[in-house]
Lab assay of single mutants.
Amino acid sequence: MTEYKLVVVGAGGVGKSALTIQLIQNHFVDEYDPTIEDSYRKQVVIDGETCLLDILDTAGQEEYSAMRDQYMRTGEGFLCVFAINNTKSFEDIHHYREQIKRVKDSEDVPMVLVGNKCDLPSRTVDTKQAQDLARSYGIPFIETSAKTRQGVDDAFYTLVREIRKHKEKMSKDGKKKKKKSKTKCVIM
């Protein structure tokens, strides 16, 4: 069974824990209790493949930012979460993405942009803004509501699919490099 290491990042209060708990335990946590770091595991079937999701729910508070490099190193894919009623959390996505790329030393890291709290009427981040940002990053965008469960499975499952595509691409690139290195030079 394939294991996928997913990391949920975003500013404090955007609903990272609520999304994760909704996926794992099928219930909505409405009281806000700032996370330092929590880890969850769940076995699911995605596109006919049974897999184990190892999900790291991270601290959004700035005082825990020193811990970010460590979990970013171990993560295979990242859910970059903002709240649709919090423009600052949307603007912060850029910083999370840049930090992930720096730590992973790669421009090509599996990510999904997630606009959470889409059940709320007080939207300050337009869907088109988020779609445009995701398009500019070359990553999928999904709106979710941890409260109603809308888009929750889709967000995590899409990230797994992005990781699969990335692994497939990397193995193809690896095979191309191996083929090239088999060419021999004969000096007579």
Rank of each mutant, 00 (worst) to 15 (best):
I100R: 03
V7G: 02
M188C: 04
K177Q: 11
D47M: 11
C80M: 10
T58K: 00
A11Y: 10
Q43M: 14
E62Y: 04
D38H: 00
D57T: 00
T124V: 09
T124D: 11
G15C: 02
Y32W: 11
P34T: 04
A11W: 10
C118T: 10
K104T: 13
F156V: 08
D33L: 01
T158A: 13
N26K: 11
S145E: 15
V160F: 10
G115C: 13
I100E: 02
R102F: 04
L159I: 06
K180R: 09
C185Y: 04
Q131F: 10
D54M: 11
L23F: 14
R41V: 04
R164H: 09
E162G: 07
D153S: 08
M111V: 06
G151C: 06
V114C: 07
I84F: 12
Q99S: 05
T20D: 02
G10C: 06
D132R: 05
T35R: 00
E107S: 07
S145F: 07
A155Q: 12
A59M: 01
T158D: 03
R102L: 11
I55H: 03
K16N: 02
V81D: 01
T127F: 06
D57C: 00
R41D: 01
K178N: 05
L133D: 10
S65K: 12
Q131L: 07
K177T: 14
E63Y: 04
V29H: 11
G13L: 08
E62D: 07
V45M: 14
D54N: 14
M67V: 04
Q25A: 04
V114F: 08
K101W: 09
G60N: 00
A130L: 11
G15L: 02
L79K: 15
A155R: 03
E168W: 02
F156K: 03
K172V: 04
Q22C: 03
A134G: 08
T20I: 03
R73Y: 13
E37D: 03
T50M: 13
L6V: 09
E63Q: 08
L53C: 13
G77K: 02
R41F: 03
E98C: 11
Y71A: 15
T124N: 08
S181L: 12
L56G: 02
I55T: 14
P110A: 05
K180W: 03
Q70C: 07
C80D: 03
G60T: 00
G13E: 12
I24V: 14
D92V: 04
Y40R: 00
I24R: 01
C80L: 12
T74N: 12
C51K: 10
V109I: 12
V8M: 05
K172Q: 03
N26T: 08
F82E: 08
V29A: 10
S106A: 13
K179R: 03
C185D: 14
V8A: 09
A155S: 11
D33H: 01
